[in-house]
């Protein structure tokens, strides 16, 4: 059963003058790693914004477990159902790695006295351990920040994980590590992982690849490979 379903989804900027996405009909299921690819300007990040509830579709709809995302509390949706790994990580600079993860757990309303232990465990999962976990995020490398962002996205155990170019700023070794983490999340932890990427390596690792084409050149339904 699909956890996310796009029904004739469309989005345009400038009050409809600049369409970016049109009539997308995708389905996303738990336990699979999806890659959304496409050229720059094809609307990959826009799609991610729509999936995360940060933007609202101008046509069509996104169904989350049979609920129209535009009609539910999107703050709750973002804090409980969808974990987002932003391209620029978007970590809070005045907090350290573990505090960034803890804050996300707090926002999601995660209860219990073991939160810090769980946060440290999540960070350990992405290979942020020891002093790194207590270091201000600005003092971490790009790859480390990316991994903290992944840990944060997983902090409240969301069913869906969205990642925007998660390997864009990383070296090859780190890319492999990150892809491995996402693949593991999808296959071992039964999560729906959707990655927006340019990287052929990531696309190759995905179970399903959706390729977005720019509206002007395509004018037709994007292909499913």
């Amino acid at each position: 059963m699909s956890i996310l379903k796009l029904e004739n989804l469309g989005y345009s900027y400038d009050s409809g003058k600049t369409p970016v996405l049109e009539n997308l009909n995708y389905e996303f299921e738990n336990g699979k790693l999806y890659a959304v690819t496409g050229r720059s300007g094809a609307g990959k990040t826009t799609l991610l914004s729509l999936l995360s509830g940060l933007a609202t579709a101008t046509s069509g709809r996104i169904m989350y477990l049979d609920c129209d995302v535009s009609k539910i509390d999107r703050y709750r949706y973002r804090s409980r159902s969808v974990g987002v790994v932003f391209q620029n990580f978007n970590l809070l600079p005045h907090l350290n790695a573990v505090e960034n993860v803890l804050l996300s757990m707090d926002i999601a309303g995660v209860k219990g006295g073991m939160k810090k232990a769980k946060a440290l465990e999540l960070l350990a999962k992405v290979d942020i351990t020891g002093p790194l976990a207590k270091r201000r995020v600005l003092k971490l490398s790009g790859g480390e920040q990316q991994r903290v962002a992944i840990a944060r996205a997983l902090s409240f155990d969301p069913q869906i994980l969205l990642a925007d170019e998660p390997t864009g700023n990383l070296d090859l070794d780190t890319q492999d590590q990150v892809i491995s983490i996402f693949s593991n999340l999808a296959h071992a932890e039964n999560k729906c992982v959707i990655i927006v990427t340019h990287s052929p390596q990531v696309a190759q690792s995905a179970d399903v690849v959706y390729q977005l084409k720019t509206i002007r050149s395509a004018g037709k339904q994007p292909a499913k490979t």
Binding site: S52, L54, Y75, R78, N90, L91, S104
Partner: peptide, 10 residues
């Protein structure tokens, strides 16, 4: 900071 906090659901 406002953007990040609201983006993660606050």
């Amino acid at each position: 900071e406002v953007g990040v906090l609201t983006a993660v659901g606050m």
